[in-house]
Amino acid sequence: MPQTVKGVVAMAEGAPVEVVDVIVPDPGPGEAVVTVQACGVCHTDLHYREGGINDEFPFLLGHEAAGVVEAVGEGVSDVAPGDFVILNWRAVCGHCRACHKGQPQYCFATHNAQQKMTLTDGTELSPALGIGAFIEKTLVAAGQCTKVADADPAAVGLLGCGVMAGFGAAVNTGGVTRGDTLAVFGCGGVGNAAIAGGHLAGASKIIAVDIDDRKLEWAKKFGATDVVNSSNVDPVEAIRALTGGFGADVVVEAVGRPETYEQAFYARDLAGTVVLVGVPTPDKQVTLPMIEIFGRGGALKSSWYGDCLPSRDFPMLVDLYNQGRFDLDAFVSERISLGDVESAFDKMHRGEVLRSVVML
Rank of each mutant, 00 (worst) to 15 (best):
residue 305 Y to I: 03
residue 308 C to H: 03
residue 325 R to W: 04
residue 328 L to Q: 03
residue 327 D to I: 00
residue 341 V to G: 06
residue 339 G to P: 03
residue 336 I to Q: 05
residue 343 S to L: 12
residue 300 L to C: 06
residue 308 C to A: 15
residue 326 F to V: 02
residue 309 L to W: 10
residue 343 S to G: 12
residue 330 A to Q: 08
residue 300 L to M: 13
residue 334 E to Y: 05
residue 316 M to P: 00
residue 307 D to V: 00
residue 328 L to M: 14
residue 340 D to L: 10
residue 301 K to V: 04
residue 338 L to E: 05
residue 301 K to S: 07
residue 301 K to N: 11
residue 314 F to E: 00
residue 337 S to H: 10
residue 336 I to Y: 04
residue 332 V to W: 06
residue 304 W to G: 01
residue 325 R to D: 11
residue 322 N to T: 10
residue 340 D to E: 15
residue 322 N to G: 10
residue 300 L to D: 07
residue 328 L to H: 02
residue 330 A to R: 14
residue 325 R to V: 08
residue 323 Q to S: 14
residue 315 P to Q: 13
residue 316 M to C: 10
residue 304 W to Y: 11
residue 306 G to A: 04
residue 339 G to M: 09
residue 320 L to D: 04
residue 304 W to F: 12
residue 318 V to Q: 00
residue 316 M to T: 14
residue 340 D to N: 13
residue 305 Y to S: 00
residue 314 F to W: 05
residue 305 Y to G: 00
residue 343 S to R: 14
residue 316 M to H: 15
residue 300 L to T: 07
residue 319 D to Y: 06
residue 300 L to K: 06
residue 300 L to H: 08
residue 307 D to T: 06
residue 317 L to Y: 01
residue 338 L to K: 09
residue 333 S to G: 11
residue 337 S to L: 06
residue 315 P to E: 12
residue 329 D to A: 03
residue 329 D to G: 00
residue 330 A to G: 05
residue 331 F to A: 03
residue 335 R to S: 08
residue 342 E to Y: 07
residue 326 F to Q: 02
residue 303 S to D: 00
residue 337 S to T: 13
